[in-house]
Computed example of a mutant assay.
Amino acid sequence: MAAGDFILGFLAGCAAIIVVLALVAFSFIRSGDIYGLGHWKLNAKAPFPSMWMNLGYWTRDDGTPIQHLDEAARNMLANILKAAGLASNNTTTQNAVAVLDVGFGCGDQTVALAELIQAPSRPHFRYVGLTLNEVQQQAAQQRLDASLLAMDKSAADNLSFKLFQADAAKPQSWNKAIRTAVDSLSDTAFSERWLLGLDCLYHFSPSRKPIFKHAAQHMDANVMAFDLVLSDDASAWQTLAVRLLGFVLLCPWRTFLTEGQYRQQLVECGYDDGGHIEIRDVSDHVFAGLAGFLQRQHAALSPYGISLTGYTAVGKVYSWLHRTRVLKAAIVVARKKSKSQ
């Protein structure tokens, strides 16, 4: 009986395997994947070489247009660093640098920042990153670890990176480990201390003021950012439209400020308006480039059954912003008042 049961079990198992394989084959044939393009999934390389996500700066220094998001997004960071005087071609690497990066994404921004300012060549570089998203924090840590592992050990000795999941908009909510890490950035050994907010500050609730105040009053740090600024010429209905847009994007109702309001907010938080706050309109390099990329990406991926419907709708919004300039894409640099002021 035992031998008979074994044979029956074996045959039943074989039959089950055959049925499953038949169902899988039938599924492929019915969907057309076996003869179509569905096997693209087998050719995708993971982890992805980049996971950038910001609106992008879609013009190179020589004036030629950029076609892909990863290059445009990195270029946005590069232009912010140039405006702050941190890019390697704008300054020497003699200064030690400390950065609090709020909303650092999936790690590309962290690694690129260190590369663009030539952090290994500086006396010291200390970086603390905060993000609300746990999955992105984990992905960023993996990407950062891989980058540091590939780096010469002697070059990495003067680099310090710490990534945390936290609400950067609410410094009072930070735990002891985060407060200690952020406080370490105020060390006077760092002649360059900066708060970086790349394409995230308009999400901060209740407003940008708590993080600006913390950077100014507790870190004695300057601000470098990319943000969206409400046009002075926006009509009442246009202002309502962008406030509704912000509401859909889970932003505070009055998150979009005019340039004058934005400047005043920085002054109230401790930054010097005596020629030390720059709000530069870069809309020509942002909205149209992103909208065009989303259209191209949708056309390129549609044959593979990949839908970008949500992103193409967003692309239409950016096309509208490009035409109307209701919101301006802006690079913001604000410097602290000197101690004597």
Rank of each mutant, 00 (worst) to 15 (best):
A2Q: 11
G4I: 03
D5W: 12
F6L: 14
L8W: 10
G9Q: 10
L11T: 11
L11C: 13
A12L: 12
A12R: 01
I18W: 11
V19Q: 04
L21G: 00
A22R: 03
F26W: 13
G32L: 01
D33V: 08
K41E: 10
L42A: 12
N43G: 11
A44W: 00
A46V: 13
M51C: 08
W52I: 03
W52Q: 05
L55D: 06
Y57A: 08
Y57F: 15
W58A: 11
W58K: 11
T64I: 02
D70M: 00
L77E: 02
N79Y: 04
L81Q: 05
L81S: 02
K82W: 02
A83W: 01
A84Y: 06
G85H: 08
L86D: 04
N89Y: 11
N90I: 02
T91V: 05
Q94S: 15
N95C: 01
V97N: 07
V97E: 04
D101L: 06
G103M: 07
G105S: 13
Q109Y: 05
A119P: 07
H124K: 14
H124V: 00
G129P: 01
G129E: 10
Q137S: 15
Q138D: 12
Q141I: 01
Q141G: 12
Q141Y: 05
Q142K: 14
R143E: 09
A146H: 12
A146I: 08
S147K: 05
L148P: 09
L149Y: 11
A150K: 15
A150Y: 00
D152Y: 05
A155P: 03
N158A: 14
F164D: 02
A169H: 07
A169W: 04
N175T: 07
D183R: 13
L185C: 11
D187G: 06
T188H: 09
S191G: 08
E192S: 13
G197S: 15
L201Q: 12
F204D: 05
S205P: 01
K209F: 07
P210L: 09
P210I: 07
F212R: 01
K213G: 04
A216Y: 08
Q217F: 04
Q217C: 06
H218Y: 07
M219S: 08
V223Q: 00
D232L: 02
W237S: 14
W237F: 02
A241T: 01
L244M: 04
L245I: 08
G246E: 13
V248W: 10
V248H: 10
V248R: 13
V248S: 00
L249R: 13
P252S: 12
T255S: 15
Q261T: 02
Q261K: 09
Q261P: 04
Q265T: 12
Q265D: 12
V267G: 03
V267C: 09
Y271A: 10
D272Q: 04
D273G: 14
G274E: 14
I277M: 13
H285F: 09
V286S: 06
L290R: 07
A291E: 12
F293R: 08
Q295D: 14
R296W: 03
L301N: 11
L301D: 13
S302T: 14
T309G: 14
G310K: 02
S319G: 02
L321H: 03
H322A: 15
H322F: 07
T324W: 07
